[in-house]
Design a protein around this nucleic acid. Structure first.
Lengths: 190, 190
DNA sequence: ACCTGAACACCGTTCAAGT
DNA sequence: ACCTGAACACCGTTCAAGT
């Protein structure tokens, strides 16, 4: 019998949340099952999270921070390359960290009361794109950033749902496809 | 007390499904509440749908057919215009038929066992884009179609989740933004 | 401070039964 | 043919109680 004092239970619950999301999708995550996997009673999670939404939000926030760190690491080269790398990183994250991605964008992000720290983490990710766009491109950076974000997000969602496979794009190459598409989108701006 | 013989209950249940999706999101749709709104017992829906998934799939299929009809109506002009119109129609449908859109792409589309007719309806919608792309553009129509679909889908999802508003794009203009973005994406192909 | 157990209202689904 | 009512296992959440 493990003891989850000192904050270990919180970590164990988040791991269980990710495992359940991986196996059954974001909608398949259950507070009771997460508690059971952590070897703890059904009501123990309420010591660490206000409710189920808060637990999912914590996992989401973790995902955004991971994504943000990856984006910082690939943010090199010219403005066009940086923007294309941002999109490729976005899609790559979705197919390699599907559980996190599903929790970040799966039904509970905008409608439920997300935490302030979660909103900040999500905003940071997007700001990284917006700042890069502002550096180089003149015509309405908000519009251009939305276009790039939409393209990356759409490709990521379709890839995660397995709907890009019958289009001849294997998951391993989908990040590269995003890079090419964004480059074309930027080239068409004039 | 209404009587729902002759297939009226099926329609009433689909209407209730859409209303619940509109109010509480796709995840908030409940078989029992749909039955209650239709003025019928909790188990009556099982006469018309195999299970909850089948009821959601039926509402999804209806959405795809509506979308397909709208796309056919705007499919005019040159190839570039047609592709841009396809994307604008896609996004316009998402913001005006949010309930249908959420059911079509909200957590139950790819993972659950979708019906054959639903898959066919979804495929028709995409085929319309693919055929138009094949007419005019040479370089890998599958790749280009995926790019356009991703851009439209991403913008639709972000708009429905209200994440485009803080980017200065009001919902009313988001369809036009999709048209402009796709035109740029096509212009950048060479 | 952290966790348990019983309880409540809700859910999807099954099954025998009603008309 | 179409619908009801009771029942089962599951869920999120609350609350008193244990150490």
């Amino acid at each position: 019998m493990k003891r989850y004092h000192h904050g270990d239970l919180r970590r164990a619950l988040l791991d269980a949340t990710l495992a359940l999301a991986e196996e059954h999708g974001a909608a398949g995550v259950t507070l009771r099952q997460a508690a059971e996997r952590a070897g703890v009673s059904q009501t123990a999670p309420y010591r660490h999270f206000a409710d189920k939404t808060a637990m999912l939000a914590a996992a989401s926030e973790e995902g955004f921070r991971l994504l943000y760190a990856r984006m910082l690491a690939v943010s090199q080269g010219g403005a066009v390359q940086q923007v294309a790398a941002w999109a490729a990183c976005y899609v790559e994250f979705a197919v390699t960290h599907t559980a996190h991605f599903r929790l970040m964008f799966g039904q509970g992000s905008a409608q439920k009361s997300t935490s302030v720290s979660l909103q900040a983490a999500a905003r940071d990710t997007f700001q990284l794109l917006l700042q890069t766009v502002k550096k180089r491109f003149k015509a309405d950076p908000h519009r251009l950033a939305l276009e790039v974000w939409s393209l990356a997000h759409g490709m990521a969602v379709l890839a995660v749902d397995g709907q890009t496979r019958f289009l001849g794009q294997p998951p391993a190459k989908i990040a590269e496809a995003a890079r090419v598409a964004v480059a074309a989108l930027l080239a068409g701006q004039r």
